[in-house]
Amino acid sequence: MPMCRPALSTAAILTFITSWNSFLWPLLVLNQTTSQTIPVGLASLINNSNIQYAEVMASSVLGFLPLIAVFLVFQRQIVQGIATTGIK
């Protein structure tokens, strides 16, 4: 298990990022605005007639902060997982 810990942590982090950024499935399934993902919420801020650029940019930054925090916490495991995948 200690040998595969970097690979498992890298896979877990990439899965978290993929599920955090999911757009199509939550758009089709969720009806309530309180349970929408961040990309779906950002898409709902953009209308055909009016785009609130300040709100969209501020929401994008707030939605991106947890991903940066996860990356900074697990940065060493990500680098080890990527670096050791090609070595025999």
Rank of each mutant, 00 (worst) to 15 (best):
F23Q: 01
L42K: 02
G41P: 00
M57P: 01
I46C: 01
K88Y: 10
P39Y: 01
L30R: 07
P2C: 03
N47V: 04
L72S: 07
V29L: 12
M1H: 05
L24F: 14
T15W: 14
T37P: 02
A43T: 00
A7V: 12
I87W: 11
A7P: 04
V40F: 03
I46H: 03
V56Q: 00
S22V: 13
A54F: 05
V61D: 01
Q36M: 08
L72A: 10
Q80A: 14
I68K: 14
I17W: 13
F74N: 08
V73G: 06
T15S: 15
C4H: 06
I68Q: 07
L67N: 12
L72E: 04
P66S: 09
M3E: 06
S59W: 02
L30G: 00
C4Y: 05
T33K: 05
I51R: 03
L28C: 13
R76V: 13
S9P: 03
E55W: 10
T33S: 07
V61W: 11
T18V: 14
I68Y: 13
S9A: 09
V79Q: 15
M3C: 11
T18N: 04
I78E: 06
Q52N: 07
W20K: 09
A83T: 15
T37M: 00
I17F: 15
S9Y: 08
W25V: 11
V40A: 06
F71I: 15
S59K: 04
N48T: 07
G81D: 04
V56I: 13
I13N: 07
R5I: 13
F74E: 10
Q52L: 03
N47W: 00
P39M: 00
T85Y: 06
T37F: 01
Q52Y: 01
S9V: 13
I38Q: 02
L62C: 05
T10N: 02
V61T: 00
L28R: 09
N50T: 12
